[in-house]
Design a protein around this nucleic acid. Structure first.
Length: 270
DNA sequence: CGCCAGGGTCTCG
DNA sequence: CGAGACCATGGC
């Protein structure tokens, strides 16, 4: 039995929840984009994944159809905000992203709205990637490392440009092997990622969650920061205190809970 | 048009 | 360790 025959997913929620930024929503409701360098067209049919172009196995892995959603939901915290987020986001999956693409994209994400992260990502792809029928591939670290701060600024990166350039150089030279890092325990992996220019604790946790399958990782951005304070009945705290609170209260799939809370907070603010 | 955004880094106490 | 200043850009 194939996973696509039985496992539910909400593509709209998954592709609009600020994990990936390059997919295009077509007029017929389908989505087109690239999984790595492979053009793919996917749609949601009766709540299941329908792959009409590209590799089925590739899509099943990328959209993480093997994540046991019902088991994850059973571990959700019982507080009202988490419960409401769950009802709103049922079917949203944490995608398995290519590591470099994820790392590079989140280096550009600091103090940026989702819409602008998307526009920077598309600019970088168009300037440095290879054209395909569903958009441009994400440029390899070697390509970005050989570019220039000015060329990256031209893609709208602003002060983030030197960080992306420097990290691309480190990865391109092989000083850091993103695939080899997958063998590390989460704390050591976090420590390694944070050493890269433009990568702090928040960005590192995004990469842990979206590219290294650490489903307990909790990136704390301004939205989740507000959510955590609300959960603590208005009681604030240092970043370290809030991170500790999240670890203790959001359960073994804290990263999933965080993603649902993030999406709920964003849509309910409009 | 002013506010704000999936923050990181450096400095100073 | 913790708080503050500074950093560019564009959607809304």
């Amino acid at each position: 039995m194939r996973l696509t025959d039985s496992v539910p997913i909400s593509l709209d929620l998954t592709l609009r929840s600020g994990q990936v930024f390059h997919w295009e929503h077509q007029a017929d409701g389908s989505w087109t984009g690239l999984i790595g360098d492979t053009p793919v067209r996917v749609a949601e049919k009766n709540g299941l994944l329908d792959v009409s172009r590209g590799s089925l196995a590739l899509a099943e892995n990328y959209f993480a159809l093997d994540h046991p959603l019902e088991e994850i939901y059973a571990e959700f915290p019982r507080d009202p905000m988490s419960a409401e987020a769950l009802e709103l986001c049922r079917g949203l999956r944490i995608i398995r992203q290519p590591r470099w693409e994820c790392l590079a994209t989140f280096i550009t994400s600091s103090m940026k709205q989702v819409a602008h992260i998307r526009s920077m990502s598309l600019s970088l792809r168009k300037a440095f990637g290879r054209p395909t029928e569903y958009g441009y591939t994400y440029p390899l670290p070697e390509i970005l490392a050989a570019s220039s701060e000015q060329a990256l600024r031209a893609c709208g990166l602003g002060y983030r440009a030197p960080n992306l350039l420097a990290t691309a150089g480190i990865v391109a030279r092989g000083n850091v092997d993103l695939d080899a890092l997958a063998g590390l325990e989460t704390p050591a992996l976090l420590e390694a990622l944070v050493k890269l220019p433009g990568v702090g604790v928040k960005v590192a946790n995004c990469v842990l969650l979206f590219a290294y399958e650490r489903l307990d990782a909790v990136p704390i951005d301004v939205w989740i920061h507000r959510v955590l304070i609300a959960m603590r009945r208005g009681r604030g705290g240092t970043p370290a205190q809030l991170a500790r609170y999240a670890r203790k209260n959001l359960g073994p799939y804290a990263g999933y809970v965080q993603q649902y809370l993030f999406h709920r907070a964003r849509v309910s603010s409009k």
